[in-house]
Structure formats: C-alpha cells, structure tokens
Simulated scan of single mutants.
Amino acid sequence: MKEARKTGNDCKFKYKYFERVTEEDRACIFKKFNEIGDKILQDTYLSGLISVFPVSRVRTKDGSGHSRTVSNKYTVRLGKQSNIVCKKAFCALHGISTKRVERLAMCLKQDDCLTSPK
C-alpha cells in the first residue's frame, strides 16, 4: 500500500522560507491542494504558482560552462496574499516531489504545459 502524502520538513534555507508560513497555513495549503484530487488540475494549480523568467546575469568562471537560460520563482497563496518560497519549501508545503516541480517548470519554459498527462 502506498504511503499517504504529507508535508515535508523545513527547508533550512538561510532566508527561512518555511518558517514564514505558520503551521495552520501549512495545513491549509496542504489540505487545499489535496482536495483538488485530479493530477492534471493539481498540475494546473501548481503551474500558476511557478514563475519562469530569463536569467538576468550569467556568471561562469571560465566562460565555457553550461549556463541556465531561465530562473524559477515559487510562491504559495495564503488567502489573497502570495509569499515567495524556495523550491524545497514549495515541495514540502504541497507534499510533492522535486521531480514533479522540475517537470512543470520545464513545461512552462517550453510553453507546452498541461496539454496531456505525462
């Protein structure tokens, strides 16, 4: 039997993104996300919380390294307010894997997100 989904642990990031969200709000975010039920609808919801934008500055030490072309910003909604969080906190608050978030971000980057289940 598959283990039930649950919120993850604190991201321990220096900006303390996870701590910016109260325990009550964490439970509310998790409950709201799980009430959606359908995976495609969940992915649509999550995609609305991920922003993809071009990298503003490329810094490679020798100029030969592979550089990213986009950066991602993750937000969580608390009522009418949106809070920026790190990727790890975003995954933990929704009880999802980083692979799922990476797939959604890649879809958003390629602008073909959610056309068919993957």
Rank of each mutant, 00 (worst) to 15 (best):
M1W: 05
K2H: 11
K2E: 13
K2T: 11
K2F: 13
E3F: 13
E3K: 15
A4H: 12
R5S: 15
K6R: 09
T7M: 11
T7S: 01
G8M: 07
G8S: 09
N9A: 02
K12V: 09
K12W: 10
F13E: 10
K14N: 01
K14V: 01
K14W: 03
Y15I: 05
K16A: 13
Y17F: 15
F18A: 07
E19Y: 05
R20A: 03
V21M: 04
T22Q: 09
E23M: 04
E23S: 11
D25H: 00
D25E: 07
R26G: 01
A27M: 12
A27R: 14
C28Y: 02
C28P: 00
C28S: 09
C28Q: 10
K31F: 07
K31A: 02
K32F: 05
I36N: 04
K39Y: 07
K39D: 13
K39T: 15
K39P: 08
L41Q: 15
L41K: 15
Q42P: 08
D43E: 15
D43P: 02
T44V: 09
T44W: 05
T44R: 03
Y45M: 02
Y45N: 06
S47C: 11
G48L: 04
G48D: 08
G48C: 04
G48M: 03
L49V: 03
I50L: 06
S51E: 10
S51P: 08
V52I: 15
V52W: 02
F53H: 14
P54E: 12
P54S: 13
V55R: 14
V55K: 15
R57I: 13
V58S: 11
V58C: 00
R59E: 14
R59S: 13
T60A: 06
K61Y: 11
D62Y: 11
G63I: 11
G63D: 08
S64T: 01
S64Y: 06
S64W: 00
G65P: 03
G65I: 00
S67M: 13
S67T: 15
T69K: 14
T69S: 13
T69Y: 07
S71G: 13
N72T: 12
K73E: 14
K73W: 00
K73R: 14
T75K: 13
T75H: 08
V76Q: 09
V76T: 06
L78T: 02
L78H: 07
G79T: 04
G79P: 04
Q81I: 12
Q81L: 10
S82D: 11
S82A: 14
N83K: 09
I84N: 02
I84T: 10
I84R: 09
V85I: 06
V85E: 02
V85Y: 06
C86G: 15
K87Y: 01
K88Q: 11
K88M: 04
K88A: 10
A89S: 14
F90R: 00
F90H: 07
A92T: 05
A92L: 06
L93W: 07
L93F: 08
G95S: 12
G95T: 12
G95K: 12
T98A: 13
T98E: 15
K99Y: 11
K99F: 08
E102Y: 04
R103L: 08
A105L: 08
M106F: 06
L108N: 09
K109W: 05
Q110L: 01
Q110N: 07
Q110M: 03
D112I: 13
D112H: 09
D112T: 09
D112F: 06
L114W: 08
T115K: 05
T115D: 07
S116V: 00
P117D: 01
K118C: 04
